[in-house]
């Protein structure tokens, strides 16, 4: 949780707490006030952790359509951006494409991993050949400060070396613990070596985008859902976590088509993978 989030949550929860403190003033309605205050605070936390659930429910119930720009609209379901042009509806939707964490844990390229990388271009082409509709695969990357990253890694390495020497000097040294610490030291050292080799550390965000057409908004959105489901099925073999993007994040991904924010704004808006 960053400082900004702390301020937002802290101050609004203080307001909720004050409502709870003032509840006895409501006499026989005290229980109602307590329930409202607790529900309010829970809703604030739910919005913080999962606004993609709350906001679409709100817009669906209130039947709110959002107009992000000329000829564009976001329906109450908040799961597509619709463009109406030349009598045709174009529906665009998004899918995350997050790499599973166990892939990042790999630092030394084992032969099996090398085989996977070698097979990747073929897998990609086969996947694309099976998709007969427009789609985009996007990688948004931001460079890290090399020195800052190196310092972090060297700090980690130092800590691991300390743990290792402490374990070695232990009369009942556990061989499995020693092996685990050695493996983690190798992982950190491999990253330091890659920095030394000229590679720049980056944060990345990967996502798919696809567009479907229809004579009506419903037709276009149904076609879009079919297309996104197909992308999800076909790219499942790529070690990617693929989930449909809705709500606020969908709107922000749509805006990324036209301009990229600076590094701070990007990190404040999206979670990236290093």
């Amino acid at each position: 949780m960053d400082n900004e989030a702390l301020i937002y949550i802290g101050v609004t929860l203080i307001s909720g707490a004050l409502v709870l403190i003032g509840a006895p003033e409501s006499g026989f309605l005290e229980l109602g006030v307590v329930i409202i205050a607790i529900l309010g605070m829970v809703l604030i936390l739910v919005i913080y952790f999962a606004d993609f659930l709350v906001f679409p429910i709100f817009t669906k119930i209130a039947r709110i359509t959002i107009i992000p720009g000329k000829d564009y609209s976001i329906p109450p379901s908040e799961d597509a951006i619709i463009k109406f042009s030349g009598g045709i509806y174009y529906a665009t939707g998004y899918l995350t494409a997050n790499i599973y964490n166990y892939v990042f844990a790999q630092e030394e390229i084992s032969e099996e991993e090398k085989a996977n990388i070698t097979a990747a271009p073929d897998k990609w082409e086969r996947a694309v050949m099976n998709l007969n509709f427009p789609f985009k695969f996007n990688i948004v990357s931001t460079s890290q400060e090399i020195q800052k990253y190196r310092d972090e890694l060297e700090g980690k390495r130092g800590l691991l070396q300390f743990q290792y020497s402490k374990e070695v000097s232990n009369s009942n040294a556990n061989p499995m613990t020693l092996r685990d610490i050695e493996r983690r030291m190798n992982v950190v050292q491999a990253r330091i070596d890659r920095l030394g080799g000229g590679e720049r550390p980056i944060d990345t965000m990967l996502y798919f985008e696809s567009t479907a057409v229809g004579v009506s908004e419903k037709d276009a959105m149904d076609a879009l859902t079919t297309q996104l489901d197909k992308i999800q099925t076909i790219f499942n073999g790529f070690d990617l976590s693929i989930v449909r993007v809705v709500g606020r994040e969908m709107y922000l991904l749509h805006k990324l088509n036209y301009s990229l924010p600076d590094v701070e704004q990007l990190k404040a808006t999206f979670q990236t993978q290093r």
């Binding site: 998709l131 695969f137 990688i139 990357s141 990229l260 590094v263 990007l266």
Partner: peptide
């Protein structure tokens, strides 16, 4: 920040 895209 840079966006790399492959589009069909």
């Amino acid at each position: 920040p840079m966006k790399l895209s492959v589009q069909l």
